[in-house]
């Protein structure tokens, strides 16, 4: 059962990173849109993410629920020591969700549209940045349950070059995902060119900040590159991820947008998978210890019940999710 639950955790993480990431990315890209295109881009973003954004962010809730039910100690450590970045990320989630919906549903379209957009854009940055920072803090090993001074216990674990570098990297990845996704959503050649340029730009930033993550890790005394070289799985994921990039560009240039989306998703999946495999079976690395999934897992009775609920839920959810995406995503892309 524990493997099944880990599988669901991995799947939710992956889907949230890709679907939620594209969603944040759409907000981030708006910042890099020229004034005269803003209205068109807004409409497009709305059409593309409006029907699915609620469903997208439930993956995050599923992650939280799996953590506190099946791995309560992991949930406790993260929410105690990463209280501040988590709250900042939540602030971002509240503001961007609200601003996005307000912008569209405000019955009177006037100057307030500009304010909604500003909030939507900055909150999208805030969310992806702090999501990345939180992820960075779980692997860096600065969380120390013994420390009691405020800085050491509640700030140090996440306020450091490595976590911030990861936050920036994740932000770039989000923008990249959104750009690849949106290229195929529009027929307007000017917009298409713009999203194409944004794909290039975000890809470059992602590569540079990705290198930055390794450099920052080195500076903080975390030998990330060595950890990556330890296992064939991670080496394979890195190599595959590297090969996908030129392939992705080829499909984009030839106008095979569905393929490009799939490849971008695969690319992110490989990065995430490698990242998790590096520390597996640990779920959090502490200052002097690691918390492995075996040590953190809840009693069997709990895991069994949860496993069955997840299976039952998946049987209900995936067909309906397929219907939703078919009605709104593929029909649109096909037409």
């Amino acid at each position: 059962m524990i493997y099944l639950i880990l599988f669901f955790l991995l799947a939710s993480l992956l889907l949230y990173t890709i679907l939620g990431g594209a969603d944040f990315g759409a907000g981030i890209l708006e910042l890099f849109t020229r004034k005269r295109d803003t209205q068109k881009v807004r409409n497009l973003t709305y059409k593309a993410i409006g029907p699915v954004w609620e469903a997208n962010h439930i993956w995050l809730i599923l992650i939280v629920v799996i953590l506190f039910v099946a791995f309560p100690e992991v949930y406790r450590l993260l929410s105690v020591h990463l209280h501040i970045p988590i709250m900042l990320m939540l602030l971002g989630i509240i503001l961007r969700g609200a601003a996005f919906i307000f912008r569209h549903y405000d019955a009177i379209k006037d100057g307030s549209q500009k304010t909604y957009s500003r909030v939507f854009i900055s909150a999208s940055f805030l969310t992806s940045l702090f999501l990345g920072i939180t992820a960075g803090a779980t692997i860096l090993g600065r969380i120390d349950p013994e420390i009691i001074d405020f800085y050491g216990a509640y700030i140090g674990p996440w306020f450091n070059a490595f976590s911030i570098a990861l936050g920036i990297f994740f932000t770039a990845v989000c923008a990249f995902l959104a750009a690849v996704f949106l290229v195929g959503e529009t027929d307007d050649p000017a917009l298409k060119r713009m999203f194409y340029r944004q794909t290039v730009g975000s890809n470059i930033v992602a590569v540079i900040s990705g290198i930055g993550v390794f450099v920052a890790a080195g500076l903080q005394g975390l030998a990330l590159h060595e950890m990556y070289l330890e296992s064939t799985m991670t080496i394979a994921s890195v190599i595959l991820a590297t090969f996908i990039v030129p392939l992705l560009w080829r499909t984009l240039n030839q106008g095979h947008y569905q393929w490009a989306r799939l490849l971008a998703g695969a690319e992110v999946a490989l990065i995430l998978f490698g990242w998790l495999w590096v520390q597996f079976p640990a779920m959090i690395r502490l200052a002097n210890d690691t918390v492995t999934y075996q040590a953190a897992q809840a009693p069997d009775a709990v895991l069994n019940v949860m496993g069955w609920v997840l299976i039952g839920g998946a049987l209900l959810i995936f067909p309906s999710l397929y219907y939703l995406f078919r009605v709104f995503k593929f029909e649109q892309a096909a037409s």
Binding site: V65, I66, V69, A70, P72, R76, A298
Partner: peptide, 21 residues
């Protein structure tokens, strides 16, 4: 949550399904 999470995990997990639907 450390103690209650596993105990009351069932309604929370079911709730996740309901949210999705």
């Amino acid at each position: 949550m450390k103690h209650a999470g596993p105990i009351i995990g069932m309604p929370f997990s079911l709730e996740g399904t309901a949210f999705f639907i």
